[in-house]
């Protein structure tokens, strides 16, 4: 059994960091087992980037311990760097170099011999659908292409641990989909990935497990389904055509119904989903109440996120 399966590829205990008087991280614990895609969610300034910078040896922790691939990020920084790939918030590529030159340069700096570096560059260009653009300078790339080049640059040594800091921020939906499929592909090859994002949909789609951090502390952790379950299960929602009907609709949906008068919406728990929907439709028909919309929906991660981080909002 490898170190990663036994102890986790990322292991953070009591990590703290402050900038002047402001604490960025406050005794944070995190554990990411080998092969997991771990989503790190949090509002701006929650400490996500600070954590990534510490784990990638760019920043020294104030207190606590962090190990990546079994190596201490302070005492064994050089070993950590040989086992990680970093894709930061900016597309950190040289705009004046071509895609191929960029990758070859980063490969040389990762100490691949010249010929191996060139071969690796070509391989990665292929893998990320950039083979045709390989001889164009990166400044002529679209946002999505630049991001993919950036991802490729983070993968030169096929690192077992990958850090992606808001990899799709500022991308249009098409480019975002391209990056998502690249990330899924990497996860499929067994990489351990720590992904920070402000987009809940992104975490929901890509992450096996999610940690929500706020104010430098862990606010919640679990699978996307577990987190959604913490704020309750499925709900039925009815939007009435007329505000006058709201009390009648509420009576129909049972004792736990909640009225949102502004939206003319009544919602209630619906653990039995379809049955609850059928009952409601039949009830509305019998009482001759006009509804604009009716449906059963799952809570979103947005709701979990807003609930957990509302005190800072």
């Amino acid at each position: 059994m490898s170190y990663g399966t036994l102890y986790g590829m990322i292991r953070v205990t009591g990590l703290a960091k402050r900038f002047g008087a402001t604490p960025a991280l406050d005794s944070l614990d995190l554990h990411v087992p080998e092969g997991q895609v771990h989503g790190l969610l949090g509002p701006n300034g929650a400490g996500k980037t600070t954590l990534v910078r510490i784990l990638t040896t760019l920043l020294r922790p104030g207190a606590g311990q962090a190990r990546v691939a079994g190596f201490d990020v302070v005492r064994q920084a050089a070993d950590v760097r040989r086992h990680i790939g970093l894709v930061g918030q900016h597309a950190a590529v040289d705009e004046l170099l071509t895609g191929r030159q960029n990758l070859a340069m980063f490969a040389r700096l990762s100490h691949l011999p010249p010929r191996a570096a060139a071969a690796r560059a070509d391989e990665l260009l292929d893998q990320f659908g950039l083979a045709d653009a390989g001889s164009k300078p990166a400044k002529d790339y679209s946002g999505g292409m630049r991001r993919r080049l950036d991802l490729a640059a983070g993968l030169i040594l096929a690192p077992p641990v990958l850090f992606l800091d808001e990899p799709t921020t500022g991308l249009d939906p098409r480019a975002r989909d391209q990056v998502w499929s690249a990330i899924r592909d990497l996860a499929g090859r067994g990489a351990t990935i720590l992904l920070t994002t402000q987009y809940l949909e992104e975490a929901d789609r890509l992450a096996d497990k999610i940690s929500i951090i706020d104010g430098g502390r862990l606010a919640a952790a679990g699978t996307p389904a577990e987190l959604k379950a913490t704020i309750g299960g499925d709900r039925i929602e009815v939007v009435a055509a007329s505000a006058a009907d709201l009390p009648a609709v509420a009576a129909l949906l049972g004792p736990y119904a909640r009225i949102d008068a502004d939206a003319r919406r009544v919602s209630a728990p619906a653990p039995d989903r379809v049955a609850a929907l059928t009952r409601a439709v039949r009830g509305l028909e019998e009482a001759a109440i006009a509804a604009e919309d009716i449906g059963v929906r799952r809570p979103t991660l947005d709701e979990v996120f807003l609930r957990l981080t509302e005190r800072t909002a």
């Binding site: 910078r53 760019l58 760097r81 590529v93 040289d94 980063f106 700096l109």
Partner: peptide, 14 residues
């Protein structure tokens, strides 16, 4: 420094 290239260099085993 601004584009994150310096950070990428610093995260490499160079």
């Amino acid at each position: 420094a601004a584009r994150g290239v310096t950070d990428r260099f610093r995260s490499l085993p160079m």
